[in-house]
Amino acid sequence: MKKNIEIRWHGRGGQGAKTAALLLADVAFNTGMHVQGFPEYGPERMGAPITAYNRIGDSPIRVHSNIYNPDYVVVVDETLLHSVDVTKGLSKDGAIVINTTKEKDEIIPLLNGYEGKVYIIDARKVSMATLGKYFPNSPMLAAIVKVAHIMDEEVFLSQMEASYQHKFAKKPEVIEGNMNALKMAFEEVK
């Protein structure tokens, strides 16, 4: 049995980390996979640290617990690096993707000695350039799809276009911007 990919998202309430985890579950489902997407619930409020999770794979998923040893971690807000142990339990064969304006050599010392691969992306720059507003979840979604090789980039883009057409049926003017955010994020993650 091939092991399912496990992903943990760290964000702040209101940034869309939960939505991104559910969108990732959606798009993986649409390409025929078995998926789980769920947030960790508690007394949430805007700006407080939140965690969301994905399990994605080729076989049915039975386990119903949080994820303690993820293959990948996505950090939607770099200020969390100071307050949350984002690399806790993270597989060193996996990777972490961080939304930051800093360079890698400035970020790595903040990761508690994490030995795996570190990827960075300036999701604010991508979002402002393509949407004119700060919505980090679309760029971060594209970044994790690329880093974790969850699916072919072209397949991802066509699935996301269909998903946005459904989601934004009443405001189609934002679809192009979101699609550009995904494409630009593929180029910007490094």
Binding site: L22, A25, D26, F29, H34, V35, Q36, G37, F38, P39, Y41, P60, I61, H64
Partner: peptide, 12 residues
């Protein structure tokens, strides 16, 4: 059904 664990988890 179990609150949040199944009620709020998206699955196949």
């Amino acid at each position: 059904q179990d609150g949040f664990i199944t009620s709020h988890a998206v699955e196949n």
